[in-house]
């Protein structure tokens, strides 16, 4: 296991190929759950958690079940079902083990099933032919990147809430312009050579 490669994957997933700002994945929560910092943190943590577990589970399924049986074209169906049931399972476990954590994350978990970032990371891990460790690291780092921009976005939106603006610019349009500026800022990272 090469630590350099892992570091490279981590930096690339958080900054250079940031899930939201350069790959355009997970935009719905990025705009939907970024009105308050607290909910942004909750959503971000749940995404990191589910993403890592999803990658841990789907990688062996693809390489030990789908590939040997020659049914890898079923990848999409199998992955989305695995993710959907996983989310349900995680929800039940958290509810049982830590009711306080469930209080804070609970409402975000059902939303995560249709978050394209989760399915996206599992599909990317396969198409980039990462090995098991690389897949898990990539999933975790992508989640961290997602959380980072989500929290930044919510901070900015809270500040902008009271700005005097024409009615039709409030809400989504403004959020998109903030997103554009953030994407511009993150483009700076694409110059990184590692």
């Amino acid at each position: 296991m090469d630590l350099g490669t892992l570091l490279q994957i981590t930096i690339a997933a958080i900054f250079i190929n940031n899930f939201v700002l350069s790959r355009f994945l997970g935009l719905c929560p990025y705009f939907g759950v970024s009105k308050q910092v607290d909910s942004a943190i909750g959503m971000g943590l749940s995404v990191i958690f589910v993403m890592t577990i999803a990658a841990t589970v789907t990688w062996p399924i693809y390489y030990f079940v789908l590939k040997p049986l020659g049914i890898d074209f079923l990848q999409t169906i199998v992955f989305i079902l695995v993710i959907a049931s996983l989310v349900q399972l995680v929800e039940m476990v958290i509810q049982k083990v830590s009711p306080s954590l469930y209080e804070s994350l609970g409402i975000y978990l059902p939303l995560i099933t249709t978050n394209c970032a989760i399915l996206g990371v599992t599909v990317l891990n396969i198409s980039e032919s990462y090995n098991f460790i690389e897949s898990v690291v990539n999933a975790f780092a992508s989640g961290v990147g997602f959380t980072l921009v989500l929290i930044l976005m919510s901070g900015i939106r809270v500040k902008l809430e009271d700005t005097p603006l024409p009615e039709y610019m409030k809400g989504l349009p403004l959020a998109f312009f903030v997103g554009a500026v953030m994407a511009l800022a993150f483009m700076g990272f694409s110059g990184f050579k590692i």
Binding site: F176, F177, A180, A183, M187
Partner: peptide, 22 residues
């Protein structure tokens, strides 16, 4: 063509749509 343009265009389109509907 880059991500920036995507966010910007979408923001403008939604603002126009809001404006017309208002």
């Amino acid at each position: 063509i880059l991500p920036v343009g995507g966010f910007l265009t979408m923001g403008v389109l939604i603002a126009i749509m809001n404006y017309i509907n208002m």
